[in-house]
Design a binder for these strands. Structure first.
Lengths: 203, 203
DNA sequence: TGACCACCTGTACCACGGTACAATAGCCAA
DNA sequence: TTGGCTATTGTACCGTGGTACAGGTGGTCA
């Protein structure tokens, strides 16, 4: 039994429609939300140019349908909104049939799908302003041990040695020992430089 | 022809291994990276407790192998590192066989896989970090004087009180006075919080 | 003139941060 | 077994950071 794919967009888009048709030959195209039946629907693909799509997604998602949002211009902000309202996938409206099938397959298995480029962009943004993730120690060919990294993370949060000790259930003496090792490895003199280094630091 | 799955972890983890085995009955477990052959490998799963995993991932990724990083404690920061060095998936080392197969399926189709919860976490972070940087002092309706700002800028560069005094041609005593005023105005306790505040800081 | 603000400075004190001496235990590879 | 590494901890010391007492000068404004 073939799965039912409903595509909701403002009009049959001459640039996107052929690809959709190739991916899902038996697709059903709708111009309006009320043309989508409540039964016998498996996946709903909504183009983000459709007015009110953010209200439409949860309507069907709540009924157990998988909803994918397609965008003419994918961007992280819109992706966030899509997933926030319950979409299971977010991609380009002009995606190739292969990608469309991939999306279908992934969400059918319970996963969430977003394009690799956008995914990496999200990753960058998620870490971007913190830059904690730029591994500071690798700049000098040094690697912090697991524990050293934990201590460093706490310093970067602004905690004092005493607070870190309490947080990690060790003595203040041990905190100092780890910091000493960190400073030597990173060739810095104090915690301020450490914070700066971790916060995409000052030269 | 069955795909070859290599699992690299420090030792056969009694809690994780059974699940791996169920997902991929013919898996091959390795304790060290050099036990993984260059040929006839399809997917490599590396547990992040393995020392030097961040260097290992790109080694195999560059040879066209799909690498998945498994963590005993998945977190966004580590996820970012994993994908940054070329991993195609990141998940929990204790994932069920179903999830493991899902990961395999997704990356086989060219996608990237990360758990839904972590994915949504990343989304939150990606948008959260996009907030316009607020002028640190305006948050409290306070305004630093010209001189206070000059001292603060030097602190944020990582200079000590003595160095700042020399830089601005004042005594250390005066530096302290300004810092005291700054801390009161911004309601912070020390220079670390000041640095963090100025570097789009920690809440 | 008096009040307020900004900038500057001294003495004094104490907590914190960082370093140096020392030691133990566990793990792992050669 | 040995050596290296990591994690942990103690004692000790000293410089730095932060706060509290105090004071002064100059400029602005009502």
């Amino acid at each position: 039994m073939e799965k039912k794919h409903y595509f909701l967009s403002k009009k049959p888009d001459s640039s996107a429609y052929p690809s959709w048709k190739l991916a899902f030959p038996d697709l059903i195209h709708c111009l309006q939300e009320n043309q989508i039946p409540e039964e016998s629907v498996d996946v709903i693909w909504i183009v983000s140019t459709v007015k009110g799509w953010e209200e439409t997604v949860p309507l069907f998602q709540k009924k157990g349908k998988n909803v994918v949002v397609l965008s003419m211009q994918p961007n992280t902000e819109e992706a966030f909104r899509a997933f926030s309202v319950g979409a299971r996938g977010y991609g380009h409206a002009l995606s190739s049939p292969t990608i469309l099938k991939q999306i279908d397959s992934v969400i059918a298995q319970g996963g969430l799908w977003v394009g690799p480029d956008l995914f990496m962009g999200l990753m960058q943004l998620s870490q971007g302003n913190n830059k904690t993730t730029v591994n500071p120690e690798s700049e000098h060919g040094s690697t912090l041990s697991e524990r050293e990294r934990e201590v460093a993370d706490q310093v970067v949060k602004g905690l004092s040695n005493k607070e870190i000790a309490r947080e990690l259930n060790i003595t203040e003496r041990t905190v100092k020992a780890h910091l000493g090792a960190i400073f030597r490895k990173l060739d810095i003199r104090d915690r301020i430089q450490l914070v700066l280094r971790f916060k995409s630091g000052v030269s």
